[in-house]
Simulated scan of single mutants.
Amino acid sequence: MKIKQFNPALPALLAMAVFVAACSSAPTTTSLLDQTRGDFMAAQGNPAVTSYAPVEFKQASEALEQASAAAARKDSQEKVDKLAYLAKQKIATAQEVAKQKSAEAEVGTAGKQRDQVRLEARTQEADQAKLKAEEAQRQAAAAQAQAQNADAATRDAQARAAALEAQLADLSAKKTERGMIITLGDVLFGTDQARLTPDGMQTARKLADVLANNPKRTVLIEGFTDSTGGADHNLALSQRRAEAVRNALQEMGVARDRIATRGYGEAYPVAGNDSASNRQLNRRVEIVLSEEGSAIPARR
């Protein structure tokens, strides 16, 4: 029987050549991609594949083209391997479909008496080939879904990180070895009181939004005062101010077990206590935001 010859893989081969030529250095490749290219060449050299499974072979060619393009772009090995695996399965599908149809064609050319015998044998082979082809398609679909899920997860993580960065910038947060620190100045509390002003409540709302969008993070709220007044009074005031922030966050929906408080009184000043402006800097509440899933280091 005469088999028509055509080469649907030529676009893929030309595309691979263009990608290779366009790169100033050798593109990324993997052992799986090399194996897939070998499988493709073997299938291309099989006349039955190009004759009986042109659609499936074209899909395999396009899949291999995508894998080669990823390699040429020097994408990650994981992404190249996922695309190569998908192409490898599509090549296997084309081969199995070609084998099935070739078997059916051979049955049709046999004599009546031999037809029955061959039909039973070839039908069984065809059924097995169909099952293999279906399994190959399922595996290819699973690999494609896994790749899409991984890409979606990466995009989601990047979006969350960008949103957090914008929120922290709005809160004037500073990065330290203990984590990001948001400072509430003395002006956000009533004078010598542990009650947040409306502006202080607005800042607390922004912090509550950060915690709502990042459920694996916790906060440590630390209160400080200047050196004016008695040490006991200052220590108690610093603790009450830290607790005022905690209470505000709880009222806004933040779970209590995600918030810790500590009052330090006049300890750990950030400026001298020799002027009114410096003392105001020392009267503050610092909110330490943990890294995701990590504990906040103790103050040194």
Rank of each mutant, 00 (worst) to 15 (best):
R279L: 00
Q5L: 15
Q66F: 05
Y268H: 13
E134V: 15
S227W: 00
E251A: 08
Q116T: 12
S227I: 02
N247W: 01
N282V: 01
Q148W: 00
F40Y: 14
G185M: 02
N273H: 15
V270T: 10
G253D: 03
Q89E: 14
G272S: 15
A242N: 04
N7V: 06
S61L: 12
D170Q: 13
Q66V: 05
N149G: 00
E120T: 07
V117Q: 10
G200V: 04
R299K: 13
S76W: 15
T154Q: 15
K88L: 13
R256K: 09
A126C: 05
K130M: 10
N213Q: 13
Q280A: 12
A12I: 06
E165C: 01
D75Q: 15
A161W: 04
E243L: 01
A126H: 02
A255T: 05
M180W: 14
A71S: 03
D186K: 14
T228F: 11
A260R: 05
P47T: 11
Q5M: 14
L220N: 10
V210W: 06
A236V: 11
A94H: 09
P297Y: 15
I91S: 02
A121C: 00
S102E: 02
K206H: 10
A21V: 14
P8H: 08
H233A: 12
F189L: 09
D39L: 03
P269Q: 07
A276M: 09
A126F: 02
A166H: 10
A87K: 11
K74C: 07
L289D: 01
R155W: 08
G111S: 15
A153W: 01
I287Q: 06
A244G: 05
Q89H: 12
K206W: 13
A26G: 02
A242D: 04
V117Y: 13
S102W: 04
T228R: 11
A163R: 12
A69Y: 07
I182V: 15
E291R: 12
C23Y: 03
T176C: 01
S68L: 07
A63P: 09
T30Y: 08
Q116M: 12
L13I: 09
R246H: 07
A21L: 15
Q128D: 07
A103T: 09
E292Q: 14
Q124F: 08
E78A: 15
P198N: 09
P54M: 06
R217E: 08
A166E: 13
A60C: 09
A53S: 12
S25L: 03
S51H: 15
T36L: 00
E286V: 04
L196M: 06
L281K: 14
T261E: 01
R284I: 02
S227H: 08
E177Y: 13
T176H: 06
L211Y: 04
L171N: 05
P215K: 04
V285D: 00
A162C: 05
T191R: 14
G200C: 03
F40Q: 04
Q128M: 12
A60M: 07
L119Y: 00
Q124G: 03
S24Y: 13
E134D: 15
P198E: 08
V20C: 06
D232N: 05
G253E: 03
T50K: 13
Y85D: 07
M180R: 09
Q167Y: 06
K112R: 14
Q77I: 04
A152V: 09
L171E: 05
L220S: 09
Q239T: 12
A136T: 08
N282T: 06
I181N: 02
E291F: 06
A166M: 07
A72H: 04
